[in-house]
Nucleic acid binder design. Structure first.
Lengths: 241, 241
DNA sequence: TGTACATCAGTGAACGCGCGTTCACTGATGTAC
DNA sequence: TGTACATCAGTGAACGCGCGTTCACTGATGTAC
C-alpha cells in the first residue's frame, strides 16, 4: 500500500555494494545447487560461500524460495541467449544441416554435463511450477524458429504434412533425449558415447524431417570442421559461464 | 555378526499381519509421493494414511530412505513387467509397425500421466543414485530387445550401419521425449496433443529406422484399431495399477 | 567543503518449527512339551 | 488340548537435530543545506 507492491523474488539492490553481494549470493547458490542439489543448498552454506551473512541474504531475498527462483531465472535467460547466439544462420553458413546439428548436439552435451545439477532441479520443478514448464516451452519454440531459419537458408523444408510442427517435434526430441541422458550419464560409462549420441541425433533429425543427409561419417571415423566448432566454442565462452 | 548381515532396505516380514502392514505402507507412500512429492511424504503422513504407526514403520524399514527405495524398486519392477507384456509379438500380430508404435506411445502417455509424481522423483534421483540410473538403462535395453522382436516378426531390419544400436537409440528418444513431456504437461494445455505426440513419435521411429511407413493418418483423421488398443488396455489393467 | 541526518547494507546470535528417529511398553502369534 | 514362553508386531509420546527466519544492532553511503 505504501509503495508499489514489491511482489518480486528479489529485492532490487540500490547501491553497487549490495548489487555485488547479490551476484555473489546467486553465484554461490548456483554452485551449491550444481554440486549437491537444491535441498542441500542451505541458506547458511550459500551465505558462507558467498562470504556474506544471513542478514544480508534476507535483505535481498524474501525467502529461500526467492533465491532458488532467481537462480533458475538467470539460468533460463542464459540458456535462451546462448541458443539464439549458437543458432544464428551466419555462424553456420556453408555447413551441411546434418553436420550443423551434430556439432550443436556435441555442444549441448558439453553444456549439460557442466550444468547437470541445475538442469535436474529445473526438471524436477516443472511438474510443480508453471513458470519453469513455460521456460521449457519457450526454449523449444525459440530453437524451433531458429532451426527453421537454418533450414530456409539452405532452401530446405521439412517433408512432412505440417513442416513447422515437425521442426518443433524434432527440437523436442533432441532436447529431451540429451537432457535425460545428461541426468543418467553420471555413473559409469554412458550407454552411448557422446559422439554416437550426437551423430544419431543428427541422423534422426534429417531422416525425420526428410531433408537429405550428406555422408554421415561411419562410427570411428573422424572429421575436422574447425571453423564451425570454433564458432561454438566462442558462443559457449561468451554466454554460458 | 549374529545373523547374516541384513543390509536390505526393508526388513522382511515374518507374519501375514506384518506383510499386510508393509503393503499398506508402500501403497500409502507411493500415493503421497505421487500427489505431493518425496519431500512432502513424511513418515508421519505415510503412517497416517496407511493406518499404521511410527513404530511399525521402523520395524519394517531401516529408515525413510529404505521406504523410498522400496517404493521405487517396486515401481521399476512393475514397469519392466508391463513393458515385457505390452511388447510381446503375439499381441501385435498383423499390426503394421508404425501403427503398433503409435498405439504404444498412447499407452505410455496414459501411464506416465498417472505416475507423473514417481517418475519425476525417479528422474531427479538418477544423477545421485546409480541404482536408478541402471534402471533406466535396463528399461531401454529390454524394450529395445522386444522392439527388435517386433521388427523381425515383420521381416524388417533397421536401414542403418548399426541396426541394433539404431533400435536402442529409437527407444531412448521415444522414452525420453514422453517422460519429459509428462513432467511438463501438468499445467495448462500441452504444446502438442497426445494424439499428435504419439503419431509423430511413430513417424520418427519408422523414418529414423528406415522401415517403411504405412499411410499415417493425416492430423484430424480417425482410425479404429479396436483389436490392438484392446490388447493394450488389458495389459494396463493387469500389470500397472 | 563541512556537517547532520536518513537510508541502505551488513552482522550473527537466538528462536522455533518440522521432521526423522528412538524407546519403553502392550498385545498377538507361533512353538515346545 | 492345554500351558508357558519366546518372538513378532504394533503403539505413540518424547527427543533432538537441522534449517529457515527474525531481530537488535553496527557500519557505510548518499543527500540536503
Amino acid at each position: 500500500m505504501t509503495t508499489t507492491a514489491p511482489l518480486e523474488w528479489v529485492r532490487p539492490p540500490l547501491q553497487a555494494r549490495s548489487r555485488e553481494t547479490l551476484e555473489r549470493l546467486l553465484d554461490a547458490a548456483e554452485e551449491v545447487i550444481e554440486e549437491r542439489g537444491v535441498e542441500e543448498a542451505t541458506v547458511a552454506e550459500v551465505v558462507r560461500r558467498a562470504g556474506s551473512s544471513v542478514g544480508s541474504f534476507y535483505a535481498r531475498f524474501r525467502d529461500k524460495e526467492g533465491l532458488v527462483r532467481s537462480v533458475f531465472e538467470r539460468f533460463a535467460d542464459q540458456a535462451l541467449m546462448t541458443a539464439t547466439d549458437a543458432l544464428s544462420p551466419e555462424r553456420w553458413a556453408g555447413v551441411a544441416i546434418d553436420q550443423a546439428i551434430e556439432t550443436l548436439a556435441r555442444f549441448v552435451i558439453g553444456v549439460l554435463e557442466k550444468k547437470r545439477g541445475i538442469v535436474t532441479a529445473l526438471v524436477a520443478r516443472a511438474p510443480v511450477d508453471p513458470t519453469f514448464t513455460r521456460f521449457g516451452e519457450r526454449l523449444i519454440e525459440q530453437i524451433g524458429a531458429l532451426l527453421v531459419g537454418l533450414l530456409e537458408a539452405r532452401g530446405l523444408r521439412a517433408n512432412h504434412p505440417q513442416p513447422r510442427l515437425a521442426v518443433d517435434v524434432a527440437v523436442w526430441l533432441f532436447l529431451s533425449a540429451l537432457e535425460l541422458r545428461a541426468l543418467a550419464t553420471m555413473h559409469g560409462a554412458p550407454r552411448l558415447t557422446d559422439a554416437d549420441a550426437a551423430r544419431e541425433l543428427a541422423r534422426m533429425c534429417t531422416r525425420y524431417l526428410g531433408v537429405a543427409e550428406t555422408a554421415i561419417a561411419k562410427p570411428g571415423a573422424r572429421r575436422s570442421r574447425a571453423k564451425s566448432s570454433q564458432g561454438i566454442r566462442r558462443a559457449r565462452t561468451r554466454s554460458i559461464r
